[in-house]
Amino acid sequence: MPRILLLHTGGTLGMAGGRPSALRPAAFFKTLKSRCPELFRLADIELELFSNLDSSEMQPELWSRLAAHLHRRLPEFDGAVVTHGTDTLAYTASALSFMLPGLPKPVVVTGSQRPLGEIRTDARLNLIDAVLSALQGPPEVSICFDSHLYRGNRTRKVKVSEYDAFESPNCPLLGTLGVDATFAPGLRQKGPFRLREKLEPRVFLLKVFPGLDPALPLALLPHLRGLVLEAYGAGNYPSDPSLGRSLLPLFQEARKRDVPVVVVSQAYRNGVDLTLYESGAAALQEGALSGGDMTPSAALVKLMQGLAYHRNRESLARFIETPIVGEMTERPPAVVETPAKKSRRAR
């Protein structure tokens, strides 16, 4: 039989309790074998307890350990499944995608909205679909949830109490697991399978909102190595100094302190274009980096890794603005219109 490594990190899927008492971590492996025995008909599954945490406790240091463990163990298996709580699942999937370049086999992250031990749980189907995706899906880090397979670094949690909890607004599905299971080819990564587990956690994610006092993020800058700014729309933010809440001084001070600022959009679909409006153009002049259509979680983790491995600003800028593992849409090459083309159009 094919071999699958199943790493349990915690989360609702492996918890016990529930209304009226609070959910709590429980003995996952015993419940798994009793509630989902058919899982072991798909593959020879080796179970490992990596951690047993609520996913709100997941931290960069654990991502590094998890990536190192997968890098060491994956060559012995045909694929891996990581069970994880849903709250930070997209962050972990994004982190693993950057930390495991050249990934030769699928690593599928999954979880559930209800514990495995409950009658109306979604955990059982999510686990079965995740194992099947680890056997047949593309060789990249993905998220399997509610019969869909998503690219891990393109996914957002969008619902709290419904089974279709995740979406991938700017990237097509990698797989659909209905009556039949169909999978896209996915990434074909170049180069050897490597481990890049270093991260710089001294970053901050700032969401622009009406009434934001610029003094607050300015006070944070001395403590930061990098900043991700969730701007409006195509990369807009308050920039009129006459209204007293311009964020342009934040970009100027960040440049002085050599703190890179990556701009992403609060909009779920499409991404930023800092050349489109005046405020975006002003941010560009102050050295802001475009996050394109990256999710905020992917941009944050990518910045953490970029700061750990790139020591000069130019190298970091190339890393942030270039697609590495499918986390952003590649920009089409600029088309320069020749005078001949213009004259034909005029005629």
Rank of each mutant, 00 (worst) to 15 (best):
R3E: 12
I4V: 15
L6T: 02
H8C: 00
T9I: 00
T12Q: 00
M15F: 04
G17D: 03
S21Y: 15
R24Y: 14
R24W: 10
F28W: 15
L32W: 15
K33P: 04
S34L: 15
C36T: 07
A43C: 02
E46S: 13
E48R: 15
S51K: 14
S51E: 14
M58H: 12
P60I: 14
P60K: 12
S64Y: 03
S64I: 04
S64P: 04
R65H: 06
F77C: 08
G85F: 08
T86Q: 11
D87C: 07
T88W: 02
L89K: 11
A90H: 13
T92Y: 05
S94T: 02
S94V: 01
L96I: 12
S97Q: 04
S97G: 08
S97N: 05
L100Q: 12
G102F: 09
K105Y: 05
V107P: 04
V109H: 06
R114P: 05
I119V: 12
T121S: 14
L125Q: 14
D129S: 12
D129N: 15
A130C: 12
V131E: 09
V131K: 06
A134Y: 04
P139I: 03
I143V: 15
I143K: 04
C144I: 05
D146A: 15
Y150E: 08
Y150F: 15
R154S: 15
T155C: 13
V158A: 14
K159T: 14
V160N: 11
V160G: 11
E162H: 14
Y163R: 14
E167P: 01
P169V: 01
N170G: 01
N170E: 01
P172S: 12
P172T: 10
G175C: 05
G178R: 12
V179E: 11
T182Q: 09
F183P: 05
P185I: 09
P185Q: 08
P185E: 07
R188N: 13
K190L: 10
L195P: 00
R196D: 03
E197F: 02
E197V: 02
F204P: 00
K207E: 11
F209H: 10
L212C: 03
L218R: 06
L218I: 03
L218S: 03
L221C: 03
L221Y: 02
H223S: 09
L224K: 00
G226Y: 00
L227T: 00
A231V: 06
A231W: 02
Y232L: 09
Y232W: 10
G235N: 07
G235E: 07
L243P: 03
L250N: 05
Q252R: 14
A254K: 04
A254C: 06
V263P: 03
S265Q: 09
G271E: 06
G271T: 08
D273I: 07
D273G: 07
L276E: 02
A283L: 02
Q285V: 09
D293Q: 13
M294N: 06
M294W: 07
S297W: 13
L300S: 07
M304E: 15
G306A: 11
A308N: 09
H310S: 07
H310P: 07
S315Y: 13
I324Q: 15
I324K: 08
M328Q: 15
M328D: 02
E330N: 04
R331H: 01
P332S: 03
A334Q: 13
A334I: 13
E337S: 12
P339V: 08
A340Q: 14
K341T: 12
K341Y: 10
K341C: 09
K342Y: 12
A346Y: 10
